[in-house]
């Protein structure tokens, strides 16, 4: 039987000084993805390998890792997509390591708590009427499976301790801001408190998104522009000077 070699990062920070790559040989199957290989290792070679996976179908966003240094979902990366046969799997680097391939992504829940939740406009007649075209923009962002690959690839998060929430959270804010019946505007919060200003739109996040959300073009840039417009738009400034607070800008 044909086999493949996978090099997997192993490290338990609580008991070991440093991590290392360990090579495993795994039988090759047709249509095999990297997660299949990892599951084989878990089942047949070393059950103590720490690995996170759930749905095996690209729907839950659990099995995020760096495969040959590219942030990827293990369940959607075909083994035969690497022509030279070399496969190196390491944990996503933007988060603290728990063990082997598992990282602590819990800080994302703390950030999500800070983004003001969906707040419907007052006085809407029930049941709500919304037209299909109006939901399409928000719907794109709602495809997010919270795999945090965009967070992993973001150089602002990786290299600067800037307080930038990261692309996932801008997508979240955009999904709420572009909800046709939402009353709030989160752009000022995103730009001032969530550090969106640090993003210099290199589009790396868009490139790695397994749901193919146009993160930079459709979420980040509109959220940046919205805040800028509100800040510098002479009409908005005039209206604001007349009317204190409230309302969607």
């Amino acid at each position: 039987m044909e086999s493949i070699k996978v090099s997997v990062y192993r490290y338990d920070p609580s008991s070991e000084k440093e991590g290392r790559f360990v090579d495993y040989e795994v039988p090759k199957e047709e249509g095999m993805v990297v997660l299949d290989a990892m599951k084989y290792i878990e089942r047949h070679i070393d059950p103590s390998l720490s690995l996170r996976w759930n749905c095996m179908a690209g729907k839950c966003g659990s099995c995020s890792a760096e495969i040959n240094h590219r942030p990827s979902l293990m369940c959607k990366t075909r083994v035969d997509s690497f022509k030279d046969g070399k496969i190196k799997v390491s944990p996503i680097a933007a988060y603290p390591l728990i063990k082997d391939l598992v990282t602590d992504v819990s800080q994302n829940w703390d950030l999500l708590k800070k983004i003001p939740k969906f707040t419907p406009r007052e006085g809407l007649e029930k049941p709500w009427k919304i037209s299909q075209v109006d939901i399409e923009r928000s719907k794109e962002f709602k495809k997010c499976i919270e795999c945090f690959l965009c967070q992993d690839v973001c150089h602002v998060i990786r290299e600067h301790n800037s307080g930038y929430f990261g692309p996932r959270h801008v997508v979240k804010a955009a999904s709420l801001d572009m909800h046709p019946l939402d009353a709030l505007d989160r752009s000022e919060f995103m730009n001032k408190d969530a550090g969106l200003g640090y993003c210099n739109i290199t589009k790396c996040c868009t490139e790695v998104c397994p749901e193919e959300i146009h993160i930079t073009d459709n979420a980040i840039i509109p959220e940046k522009e919205r805040a800028v417009n509100a800040e510098y738009d002479p009409i908005a400034i005039f209206v604001r000077s007349r009317r204190k607070g409230g309302g969607k800008r």
């Binding site: 969906f118 049941p127 709500w128 009427k129 919304i130 709602k142 709420l176």
Partner: peptide, 14 residues
Amino acid sequence: EEYGALFDRTPEGT
């Protein structure tokens, strides 16, 4: 829907 879910719509918007 009031919690923020966005369902697909009919031509009448329901």
